[in-house]
Write a protein that binds this DNA or RNA. Structure first.
Lengths: 203, 203
DNA sequence: ATATTGGGTTCTGTTTTCATAATTTATAGA
DNA sequence: TCTATAAATTATGAAAACAGAACCCAATAT
């Protein structure tokens, strides 16, 4: 039994571009030219157009009709907005998730937390951090909510990697452990309030 | 000075399909065939694909690679999720909007409210209602937040028109006036709490 | 009757080609 | 020298053409 051979070319392009944008290999406001990208992926420009369209829908690119697509810019207002939205959505997701959480969900979260602590560069820490935040929420089983949150997390990550690029200090994230403990006790109130404080610290 | 001749064919298709989905002219799970739609718009199927892609991103369609796109289905879980997200996001937007609200914003909202009261069928009431809910929030000036909310409102509208299709009774919406009064007094707390109750009543 | 195979049809995803809008470069004028 | 216009180049958006996967339906086997 094979796993999803149904991945379209435009999916692959979208994934690759997403990562390049997150990691800052593509800079804010950088132009995304269709046939240039097409060449690097050995395709025609149509699948590229479709990938760009979806990047735009996810807030990672900005398009002006007939004038091309650019990597989405980043100003302080955007950071503020993203934080506000995460603060609005993630606590809700967490509250719905906790009662439905399975042992499997919990162990995934713990694993991600370990990966956070073990990370020794910003890129891999960020990946693990994002996995942690997703792992504690997936159980809510609300697809729109989860994908909205995922997009916001990606945009946060982009900001993080863009501004703190080189600086890296090992960190043990007390909030994460506190959240995990509360979840284990099924103590939604403290889990949610710690998560809120945690997100408030974002900048 | 012309207004936006930069509308692409795929934009027009997207708009038309959006309305057809909202109004229930396209039913949940109905198949959206590319060349069929292309024929009705006298285009090739490429712009149609792009329109479908964006409908998918907005939660109005569901696509399975190589197996086509369908109008997004609607089960009680979805309704619940949409309500939860609106409850999470709209109060936040309102709180940020009120301090920035201009007289123009306010009069737009009043106009929409009047249109609600004057409506004598469900379709036009729904349009006015949506305009009201947007008008009281635009001032927050948070584009991602606003477009997320707009999409949720569209999905609510779809549910509304889908289930209560024919029934129509004139209604004067007390919540709307209460919200407007609170906004006029710059009383964010009551405005937000009335909005929350108002959204809670959604089903 | 039910399940299964095969062939034909339909539909999606992609490439190739093209028209036209936008941008850049060059040229002429003040 | 700077501005404004025109020509050449480049890029986007759409059409046409095509390959291959999914679907349908009839004929065959169980």
């Amino acid at each position: 039994m094979k796993t999803e051979p149904n991945i379209t070319i435009s999916d692959q392009i979208q994934l690759a571009l997403t990562n390049q944008i997150i990691r800052g290999q593509l800079l804010p406001d950088e132009k995304l030219r269709q046939d240039h990208i097409a060449k690097t992926f050995n395709t025609s420009h149509v699948p590229v157009r479709e990938a760009l369209l979806r990047l735009e829908a996810r807030g990672l690119a900005v398009s002006i009709p007939r004038r091309g697509v650019r990597v989405a810019p980043f100003n302080p207002d955007d950071i503020f907005e993203i934080k506000a939205m995460r603060l609005a959505l993630e606590p809700v997701a967490l509250r719905y998730a906790i009662p439905k959480m399975t042992p499997d969900n919990l162990s995934m979260a713990k694993e991600a937390q370990r990966a956070c602590d073990d990370a020794n560069d910003l890129v891999s820490w960020e990946q693990a951090n994002r996995q942690f935040h997703s792992a504690i929420l997936v159980a809510c089983a609300m697809p729109r909510l989860l994908s909205a949150i995922e997009n916001l997390q990606i945009q946060s990550a982009r900001h993080l990697l863009g501004t703190w690029r080189s600086t890296w200090e090992e960190r043990t994230d007390r909030d994460h452990t506190a959240i995990l403990n509360a979840i284990t006790r099924k103590d939604s109130d403290t889990a949610v309030s710690v998560l809120k404080k945690h997100l408030q610290r974002l900048r």
